[in-house]
Each structure stands twice: as structure tokens, then as C-alpha cells.
Nucleic acid binder design. Structure first.
Length: 317
RNA sequence: AAUUUAUAAAU
């Protein structure tokens, strides 16, 4: 059974949920019944394949077969509900877990997921309360919990709150990791403090953490979204010299930066830079480029790009 | 140190 679970998991963690299901069926046909771990692996296979509704259906199926879920099961279900924007249902499930007699009590993952929920559902003011409740329940936050709380503040441009959390990490004997630094950096970028964002980036290096693709892209955006295109481009070069390959998000960030620097710049340069690196533009990147052309008043180029979008079979949204 | 769950970047 463990062998099968391992096999299913190998497919599922790559988002290959069809193959995962196929093996799961085969397992049953060979007379090996799935256990709860198997079910959880199937659920997470759906999740990794972004098949959130299918995951929820599977969960209903489990209930129909009287399979008792555990906290991990419910955590995955909460994750899927959040992805589908079904926040009320997620909260309902969370509350049911918190009842005294509930079989599956919320754990640190559950609480962290709920903090994240409140961030993405536009109720960041609830995040700290959830965090405090978790403490009151005697659960110790780990670095992911702190990072989630920080990211919540960061995405809302609340840099002071984010910094407070960052300092709490150290106070509680944990070490900020690359995600912590990137979130703090992002908090400054989102609140019009690109210089502070750079300071965080440098601080990360001084603490012997190597900035990765995400950290670099976040710094590029900190400059770009605040109108500092030259600095953004400089970081882009710094990144490549550091041996980190840009991806579509990086290029899209630069494309957006071109539309925000307040003057007419050559967006084509960025487009061909992407092409030279074999990075194919997706819908978001096209939107960004078209938007930037509009911002700088190059309406004809915007239309041309829109047309080439269709030619390359990238769906406009 | 390996069967399953939570966190950071773009329009």
C-alpha cells in the first residue's frame, strides 16, 4: 500500500492527477484498498493539478463512503475552497473544526491557511486575530505562519505591520528565511518605498541568503511599479550576472515598468529580450505590454501586439 | 533526512 501511495504521490505532486487516479484504480483492482493517506494523496493530486472542484467532489465521495477525514484532509479542502473563492464555506469548516468535540482539531497548517484566507478575501484586519487565537490554543507558529502573516500585510502595502512581524520572528527564536525577506521587500515595494526594498534585499545577502528568482523579480517590481525603470533594468542585469534566469513573471514585471516611468520608452526592447531568452509571453504579459503601450501613447503598437497575440494563440481576457 | 496539507514576485 505504501508503494502505491508513493507512486500515486509521485504523479500527484507533479500535477499529473489523471495518472495518479489511474494508479489509484489499479491499486484497488489489485485488491489493495486505499487508506486515508491514499485519499489525502488523491486530494492533493487534484489540488496540485488545480482541479479544486474535483477535489471537493472527491471529498464528498469520501464522506459518502464513511471515510473519516483527518486534519490533513480538511486542510486540503480548506485550501481548495479558498482557491475557488468559497471563503464562507472555508470559514464554516474551520469553525466546525474548532468545536470542542470535533474529531479533527485545527493545527498550525489550518490556522495558517485561515490567515491566508483573510488576506486574499480582503479582510486583512482579521489576520492578527487568527494568529492570536492560534497562540491562545497553545500552538506555536513556525516560519510559514509568520511569513503568511507578513505576506498578508505586504500585499496590502502595510509595511509597518510587516516589519513588526519580521522582528517577531527573531524574537521568537526563528530565523527569517528567503520568503520572509522577500515578503518584507514586497511590503516596501507596495508602499512606495523602493529604497527600503533594496535595503531588505541587501540585508538578505548579508545574512547569507541567496536571492532567488522570486526575490529578484520582487525587487524589479519594487522599482518598476514606483516609476524607476532604470533601476529595475539594472536589477534585471544584476540577476542574470548572478546566474539566475528570468522567467515570464520577470519579463512581465519589466513590461509593466515600461508603462509607469512617465516617459516614452522602447517596450520592443523588452519584448525581444524575452524572445531572445526563449520566454513565450502569456496572457498576463501581453496585457502588461499592451497596457504599457497605451500608457506611453503608442496606440498603434498596442493594436499590433494585440493582433500578434491572436496569431500566437494566446487568449485575450 | 523521503507516502499526504499551509507562506513570497507580474497585467
Amino acid at each position: 500500500r505504501s508503494t502505491y501511495n508513493n507512486l500515486i504521490n509521485a504523479c500527484g505532486s507533479n500535477g499529473n492527477w489523471r495518472e495518479a487516479l489511474r494508479i489509484c484504480k489499479q491499486m484497488t483492482e489489485n485488491g489493495v484498498g486505499p487508506d486515508l493517506v491514499t485519499h489525502n494523496i488523491v486530494l492533493s493530486a487534484y489540488k496540485n493539478g488545480t482541479q479544486y472542484s474535483k477535489a471537493l467532489s472527491y471529498f464528498e465521495l469520501m464522506k459518502g463512503k464513511n471515510v473519516r477525514p483527518d486534519t490533513t484532509t480538511l486542510n486540503i479542502v480548506i485550501y481548495c475552497l479558498v482557491k475557488l473563492g468559497q471563503y464562507d464555506k472555508a470559514i464554516e469548516l474551520f469553525n466546525s473544526m474548532r468545536e470542542k468535540r470535533a474529531e479533527c482539531q485545527p493545527d498550525i497548517v489550518t490556522f495558517t491557511s485561515i490567515i491566508h484566507l483573510y488576506s486574499v478575501s480582503g479582510q486583512v484586519e482579521n489576520c492578527r486575530a487568527v494568529f492570536n487565537t492560534m497562540l491562545a490554543e497553545g500552538l506555536n507558529p513556525n516560519i510559514v505562519t509568520y511569513n503568511t502573516l507578513m505576506a498578508a500585510y505586504a500585499s496590502h502595502g502595510m509595511n509597518e505591520e510587516a516589519l513588526l512581524v519580521f522582528n517577531e520572528i527573531k524574537k521568537n527564536g526563528l530565523l527569517p528565511d528567503i520568503v520572509s525577506y522577500t515578503s518584507l521587500l514586497n511590503a516596501y515595494g507596495r508602499s512606495q518605498h523602493p529604497g527600503k526594498a533594496r535595503e531588505v534585499f541587501d540585508m538578505m545577502r548579508r545574512n547569507n541568503l541567496r536571492p532567488n528568482l522570486v526575490s529578484y523579480s520582487a525587487l524589479i517590481d519594487a522599482y518598476g511599479s514606483n516609476g524607476l525603470l532604470a533601476e529595475a533594468v539594472e536589477v534585471f542585469h544584476e540577476m542574470e550576472q548572478d546566474g539566475i534566469e528570468p522567467n515570464i513573471v520577470t519579463m512581465c514585471t519589466l513590461l509593466a515598468a515600461c508603462g509607469r516611468c512617465g516617459r516614452k520608452v522602447n517596450i520592443d526592447v523588452v519584448l525581444s529580450a524575452a524572445e531572445m531568452r526563449g520566454i513565450k509571453l502569456n496572457t498576463v504579459a501581453y496585457n502588461s505590454a499592451v497596457g504599457s503601450y497605451m500608457n506611453v501613447g503608442e496606440y498603434e503598437k498596442a493594436i499590433t501586439l494585440y493582433k500578434s497575440m491572436k496569431k500566437r494563440r494566446v487568449k485575450p481576457d
